[in-house]
């Protein structure tokens, strides 16, 4: 900092490192990510209506499938609600990941990212702070949905450790998706468009999947896609971890699905993160 600055000198200006070292670069990334994660979560806390209504929707899905459609769907799980809940979890966190695109588009639109770009902050922190905040938000949503599930008769049967492993896998999947939606948010001209751009991507993947109905009930030409697309693989993995591999009705082991799901997650991260960063850099 130069000394020729304005205003009365109440608090003394601390010295800032002028040329950041690689260590301070990393430290800045961590510290700026924390600052922005906190900022994004404060926004969630300040508009509780948004969180409330975004949880209402999956709860309605639970009630709809549990009590309206459920009776007509035959599965290999001990009960339909045990089959359903892992699917609902994946659907819910995937929809939650859409908020990454909306949030980024909104920040671009309102000009706050202009301010961030003129600050000596870490370049990656805007995207990291956004995806981290959405991950934490999704954690909160999964806790609520677990409670809702337990209320309507969901009974996970594999023990706490495997249940938590299943939850972690779902959240990790949503985090990887967040980076994909970051690209959508950075491409969209405004937040409304970001939202309508996101849903056509997510809808077929959620419904043409193992989330709500057994794969065997679909026409054979659809089964290949519906079995191995990333949402389904993750649903099957979570279902195996939470209520046992037999419940998937595929005859595959838990490991089979978990490994595939992790591969998708890793693939998404490898592809989406550099693309999102590039998009962020070149967006004018």
């Amino acid at each position: 900092m130069t000394t020729a600055t304005a205003t009365p000198p109440t608090p003394a200006m601390p010295a800032t490192p002028l040329s950041p070292t690689s260590f301070s670069n990393l430290w800045w990334l961590v510290s700026d990510t924390i600052t922005l994660t906190r900022r994004n979560l404060l926004a969630v806390a300040r508009i509780p209506e948004a969180l409330f209504f975004s949880t209402i929707q999956p709860i309605m899905f639970v009630l709809l499938f549990r009590y309206v459609f459920g009776g007509a769907i035959q599965t290999d799980a001990s009960s339909y609600v045990n089959y359903l809940m892992p699917g609902i979890f994946v659907q819910t966190v995937a929809f939650g990941a859409v908020s990454t695109s909306i949030g980024l588009a909104e920040d671009l639109q309102k000009g706050i990212i202009e301010r961030f770009r003129a600050l000596p902050m870490s370049r990656g922190a805007v995207l990291l702070g956004r995806t981290t905040a959405d991950l934490i938000r999704n954690m909160f949503v999964v806790i609520i949905m677990t409670a809702v599930g337990l209320l309507v008769g969901f009974r996970p049967s594999t023990g706490v450790a495997l249940y938590l492993a299943g939850t972690s896998l779902i959240l990790l999947f949503a985090y990887a998706l967040s980076w994909g939606f970051a690209i959508v948010g950075l491409t969209a001209p405004n937040s409304e468009t970001a939202q309508v751009m996101s849903f056509p991507l997510i809808f077929p993947l959620t419904f043409v999947s193992a989330a709500f109905v057994p794969l065997a009930s679909m026409p054979s030409w659809l089964q290949g896609f519906a079995t191995y697309q990333p949402f389904s693989v993750t649903v099957s993995a979570a279902r195996s971890l939470m209520v046992g591999a037999a419940s998937t009705g595929t005859g595959r082991s838990t490991m089979y699905w978990v490994v595939q799901s992790l591969a998708w997650i890793l693939g998404f991260l490898i592809v989406f993160i550099p693309l999102a960063i590039r998009k962020y850099r070149t967006r004018t």
């Binding site: 601390p14 800032t16 800045w28 510290s31 700026d32 600052t35 922005l36 900022r39 404060l42 926004a43 300040r46 508009i47 309102k110 000009g111 706050i112 202009e114 301010r115 961030f116 600050l119 000596p120 902050m121 922190a125």
Partner: peptide
């Protein structure tokens, strides 16, 4: 800027503190 680039959801103080933190002060 022309379009007041401040965060709607934060208070005035939180906005200033956020900028200060992002300046690593």
């Amino acid at each position: 800027g022309q379009y007041a680039a401040v965060d709607e959801n934060l208070t005035g103080r939180e906005n200033l503190q956020m900028v200060g933190n992002l300046n690593h002060l």
